[in-house]
Design a protein around this nucleic acid. Sequence first.
RNA 1: GCCAACGUAGCUCAGAGGCAGAGCAGCUGUUUCGUAAACAGCAGGCCGUGGGUUCGAUUCCCACCGUUGGCUCCA
Length: 580
Amino acid sequence: MVTEENFDLTELRKRIRHSAAHVMADVVTQMFPEAKLAIGPPTQDGFYYDFMVSKPFSEQDLAKIEKRMKKVIQRNHTFEYQEYDRDEALKLNSDEPLKLEIINEIPSNEKITTYKHGTFEDLCAGPHVKSTGEIPAFKLLNVAGAYWRGDETQPMLQRIYGTAFESRDALEEHLVRLEEARRRDHRILGKELDLFSIHQETGPGLIIWHPKGAKIRGLVEEFWKNEHENAGYELVYTPHIGKSTLWETSGHLEFYAENMYAAMNMDGQDYYLKPMNCPFHITYYKTSLRSYRDLPMRIGELGTVYRYERGGVVQGLLRVRGLTQDDAHIFCRPDQVESEINGVLDLTFHLLSSFGFKEYEIMLATKPEKSVGSDDKWQLATDSLRRTLDSRNTEYSVDEGGGAFYGPKIDVHIKDALGRKWQITTVQFDFNLPDRFGLTYVGEDSAVHQPYMIHRALLGAMERFMGILIEHYGGAFPTWIAPVQVKVIPIAERHNSYGQQVTSLLVNSGIRADLDDRNERMNFKIRDSQIQKVPYMLVVGDKEVETSTLAVRSRSAEDIGVLTTEEFKSRVLAEINSRI
RNA sequence: GCCAACGUAGCUCAGAGGCAGAGCAGCUGUUUCGUAAACAGCAGGCCGUGGGUUCGAUUCCCACCGUUGGCUCCA
């Protein structure tokens, strides 16, 4: 362990990982002399090194590399720092075309430095641990193709991922966390809990919601609708396809065509599946002459859109081709922008915290180089976003130039139960569409003005949000959205009718209760309900029938004890109402 | 799209150039049971799709489709 200097843990890990990457590159170049080096940085959870090789590495190669790395670590070579002038550096790396490329991009006023351990010297800004012996625990994880500089026009390199920690225990803990993440994978839980499926026959990225998954989604949507109506939104339904002229006006055919499904031609007219809802909401706006008194108008819809995503990126519920956005468009006057943004943020945090997401990361993205809309519009919009965020005393970071070409935006990332970050909420100004569609309202001055348009999705897309929710809760949904809230478990057949009475009573009070009257032992039924992560199990046998009670068990394996049906009912209803 | 691995029963997975296998789930019985799997029997298959090699291919080769892990982290 490094002790002389009091490194902060993240810094220490960075050094360990970066050093492990060097050791790996050392071993790889020994084993595969023709391998050319690219880069090998530490990452958030580990490290990688990219190599240019003619033949990809195999799993067996990884095991061998790992073995030899251990030997290098044992030999405890010192990491030696070295400075070079440009010519020396070029000469030193004459055999490494990718390194040469990097050296040539280093500004002339910067030093060119290397780190050397044993016979392996690598162009590197450092820093490293003192010697290879100070890499206490590491593991190689997987191989993957990666483009040189992440650019698909560049050659594909082979990347080896690994991770390293300051102690065996910390490494072990990390591997357990990876395993936990795998166990919570929404695709696995989706199957186990019978929530949804995806089929080769129906098409990749297209979800079939099974009754239980549909139940959860329906409850989330119902909650979403209620909260939106409470927040002054009006909800609409719009079609799934639209004529080509609509998408010409909106600019989608010009700018978004590669994500759109091909046209369907009927009656000599081209129709397209909608990739976005905005043109329809705008069309609604235009159905009437709008006065300044009508604004703000908040038009919302759980709108299902279809987008072509490249084969390699489609994944479970997280990246799909048919998705339902929790979409809304706000049309407002310039003087209303701030309060509207505030309202959107209030609603966002209310919704997200209802699902147990309490940690947020907020990004304000400003005007990019290529953009539409006048400078003063950008100014006003960006300022109002900034002012709104400032006035809320929320922390946020600014992504300069990261806005959409049609307006600035605020993005919200959430942290789930495993501490993983997900980008979900987006609030975007749009200077483009009001122009293209010629949106207007009549002002107090009886002159015609153009409204501001804000596009926002709070949960993002229902499919993706459900995927995140499944992993966040690990499939153990809180009672208010659990597809089955209560399982009634009679011990023997003679208890079925009492079980049925209890079930009906609960169902009649709006509780999703189910009777398990299968010809199975109680233990089997309990196990089944545990696996299905049903919040409550009610065991009924001779004692309960006799005293008109229930033996209540929760899925967290707590024995809650014996309650009357009424007691249990009010307890569960209270829990449902408080959404816990 | 690109790199790699994978695709066998509803699910999880084993197998091998020569008759296709297990566990769970399903069905039929038996059992009536007190907090995480009762017992027995039965049924279940175009071995992803198409082509090639071979006397013979689910197995070997090629293509396609699909799934999984990657493709921002700048020496």
